[in-house]
């Protein structure tokens, strides 16, 4: 067992073999995998992403590790725009569209989505 300590702002692993979660939310896994995949596919050189990631982390030096993948995302945005894959304007526009048109809009009233009534014979 490890001993948590207040000065490490981390959920220290409770077991040795990989207890603490690496991804807190699905988007973190997504952006991680996207960057990894593009590198494996030779779309860019790892070093060029690493430089951006370090820069993002240094610019937010006072933060804790909970926002690590936000730095990763910001570095990825700079990477894909810097490489000319997409423009920053396109990214902003698409994000606004997604926000305006959620894929699964809120229904007006809570209630069952379907009812299969009792059968009478």
């Amino acid at each position: 067992m490890n001993t948590p300590h207040p000065r490490l702002p981390a959920d220290l692993p409770s077991d040795g073999a990989g207890g603490s979660p690496s991804f807190g939310e699905p988007w973190q896994a997504r952006i991680f995998a996207l960057v990894a995949r593009m590198c494996e596919d030779g779309r860019y050189d790892w070093e060029s992403f690493k430089v951006l990631l370090i820069d993002e982390i240094e610019r937010h030096g006072r933060t804790d590790s909970s926002d690590y993948y936000e730095r990763w995302l910001a570095a990825c945005e700079r990477l894909v725009t810097g490489q000319g894959f997409v423009s920053a304007a396109d990214l902003a526009e698409r994000k606004a569209e997604l926000a305006a048109h959620p894929p699964h809009p809120t229904s007006a009233a809570p209630g069952p989505i379907a009812i299969d009534p009792p059968r009478r014979t």
């Binding site: 939310e25 699905p26 988007w27 997504r30 952006i31 996207l34 593009m38 936000e70 995302l73 990825c76 945005e77 894909v80 894959f85 997409v86 396109d90 990214l91 902003a92 698409r94 994000k95 997604l98 926000a99």
Partner: peptide
């Protein structure tokens, strides 16, 4: 907001 940024990148790429 952040999940939307990720989605936008993935969709466009």
């Amino acid at each position: 907001d952040i999940a939307l940024r990720v989605k936008a990148i993935e969709q466009l790429l």
